[in-house]
Simulated assay, not measured.
Amino acid sequence: MVETARSEKTPGWLDWYENPSKPRFKVPPGAVDAHCHVFGPKDKFPYAPERKYTPCDASKEQLFALRDHLGFSRNVIVQATCHGADNRAMVDALNHAHGRARGVATVRRDSSDADLRVLHEAGIRGVRFNFVRRLVDFTPREELMEIAARIEKLGWHVVIYFEAVDLAELWDFFTALPTTVVVDHMGRPDVSKAVDGPEFERFIKFMTENPNVWSKVSCPERLSVSGPVALNGEQNAYRDVVPFARRMVETFPDRVLWGTDWPHPNLKNHMPDDGLLVDFIPQIATTPELQRKLLVENPMRLYWPELC
Rank of each mutant, 00 (worst) to 15 (best):
W171N: 09
V191K: 01
G155C: 09
M145L: 04
V181Q: 07
V217K: 06
S226G: 11
V241W: 00
A168P: 10
F200D: 01
K205N: 13
L154W: 05
H185W: 09
K216E: 00
E169I: 06
G227Y: 04
L135C: 06
D137Q: 10
F162W: 07
L154H: 14
P228R: 09
V242G: 02
R255K: 08
T139I: 10
S218N: 05
K205R: 15
E146R: 09
E250W: 11
G187M: 11
K153Y: 12
R150C: 11
L177P: 04
P253R: 15
E142P: 04
V127L: 02
S226I: 15
E199D: 14
E234S: 11
E146F: 10
D196V: 11
L170S: 08
D137K: 14
D196K: 11
E250I: 03
W262N: 06
E146W: 11
V241M: 12
A149I: 09
L170P: 14
R134E: 05
K153R: 15
M186Y: 08
Y238H: 13
V217Q: 03
P198C: 03
L144C: 03
F203D: 12
F173L: 08
I124V: 15
T180R: 03
A194G: 07
L177F: 10
F174G: 02
R247H: 12
L170F: 06
A164L: 06
I147N: 05
F138M: 00
P243G: 12
G259L: 01
R141S: 06
I151C: 06
L135F: 13
I147P: 11
E146S: 10
A237P: 00
G187V: 04
Y238F: 15
D254Q: 15
K193R: 14
K205A: 11
D166C: 11
V225T: 10
P198Y: 02
L231R: 01
F174W: 03
T260D: 02
E221L: 14
V242C: 09
K153E: 15
E169N: 06
M248N: 11
L167H: 07
H157G: 02
I124N: 07
Y161L: 11
G187A: 10
V159T: 05
P243W: 05
V217Y: 08
V132A: 01
V217I: 14
P220Q: 09
F244W: 06
F131T: 01
L167W: 06
E221R: 15
